[in-house]
């Protein structure tokens, strides 16, 4: 760790802080706080006795900005070389994409295809994200969950979603 200290020492405080995780954590909180504090007053603040709908959001926004600044300041106290990893040691971009695509496909196939294709697509794509996944294993798992899901949700719990819609392309 001492060797990594050498190059960073030449930079000033501002450069050092830009590498810290806490700095970005604070920034994100300041952003959320600012959204609330700026939008809040537009819902009418009212008085302390007759509080308007904008009072609490504005107050919370200000508090969150304060907390964000405090969290960001903590980054100064963190020594060099620690807490600088915004990404995990081995980023799983493909797996993350698969997990996030899974609900998206559920929405698309659910709206235009029905419960069965939505379930299949959702499970299949999600399972591809695992590095040990095989095509055959993913297909079998998806089929199994599709059968189970249709039985449980369509026939037992009777949610109002057709099993198959044959791509009629008319929204609902």
């Amino acid at each position: 760790m001492s060797s990594t200290n050498e190059p960073t020492r030449s930079h000033g405080l501002s450069m050092r802080i830009l590498r810290k995780r806490d700095f970005y954590a604070g920034l994100l909180m300041i952003f959320f706080g600012a959204v609330m504090a700026v939008h809040g007053p537009s819902y009418s603040l009212g008085t302390l006795m007759h509080m308007g709908p904008g009072f609490l959001p504005t107050a919370l926004g200000v508090i969150l900005i304060g907390l964000g600044i405090a969290i960001g300041m903590m980054a100064i106290g963190v020594p060099d070389g620690e807490d600088e990893d915004l990404l995990p040691p081995s980023p799983q971009w493909f797996a993350w994409a698969c997990i996030l695509a899974s609900p998206l496909l559920f929405i698309v196939f659910g709206m235009y295809g029905g419960l069965a294709p939505a379930t299949f697509a959702c499970v299949f794509v999600a399972s591809l994200g695992d590095s040990k996944a095989t095509w055959i294993g993913s297909v079998l798992l998806s089929l199994l969950i599709t059968v189970f899901g249709v039985l449980l949700f369509h026939f037992v719990l009777q949610i109002p979603m057709p099993v198959l819609k044959f791509f009629s392309w008319s929204v609902m």
Binding site: L100, P103, C122, I159
Partner: peptide, 30 residues
């Protein structure tokens, strides 16, 4: 785990959908 989380993803999607029968909520959960 490779069998667990994809199945759970389905239950996540259908669960939020079934709460109000509304696809918007699946987007919300995402």
């Amino acid at each position: 785990y490779r069998f667990l989380y994809p199945s759970a993803m389905f239950f996540v999607c259908i669960g939020v959908y079934a709460a109000n029968n509304d696809m918007f909520q699946v987007g919300e959960v995402l």
